[in-house]
Amino acid sequence: MVTDEAIFDAVGEVADPEVPVLTIADLGVLRGVRHEGDEVVVTITPTYSGCPAMDLIRHEVELTLNHLGVDGRVETVLSPAWTTDWMSAAGKSKLTEYGIAPPTGTRAVGGPVMLSLTIRCPLCGSPDTSELSRFGSTSCKSLWRCNSCREPFDHFKAI
């Protein structure tokens, strides 16, 4: 029998279709693997309620289970709500290499005050950056521009 740990490691390699450099294990989208009798249950959680990648992720997890020859299903849970705090350190450094500024500890919500400029440019490392839009190419990202190298970049928002 394939152990829960081995299954976790295998399905954990499924890539996020929107940020393919990250796996669902890096993101913390993969919540767990358990046996219910002979059936394997893999639990995943969406980053945002409307995350359009969830159907594909679920499908890829099912394919991986198939490859392993295990009989299982995928369960989506909403609680506890996903947070960027679950992103692994390895995931954060992969994001930077990919050109996306990783989440910081600050949540940018709660009032009209703009974020302080603490997001470093993932391309040149300059701290002199400004926010162009609180919503970037997906719900989980905001759009920034570096004032040093002038390149635009995405920032993974803390949530």
Partner: peptide, 20 residues
Amino acid sequence: AGVAGKAVKEVAYHVDHATQ
């Protein structure tokens, strides 16, 4: 409770966007 716990974080960004 699960849906609300997730949505409240998203909606906070909506409030912020509208406010600005």
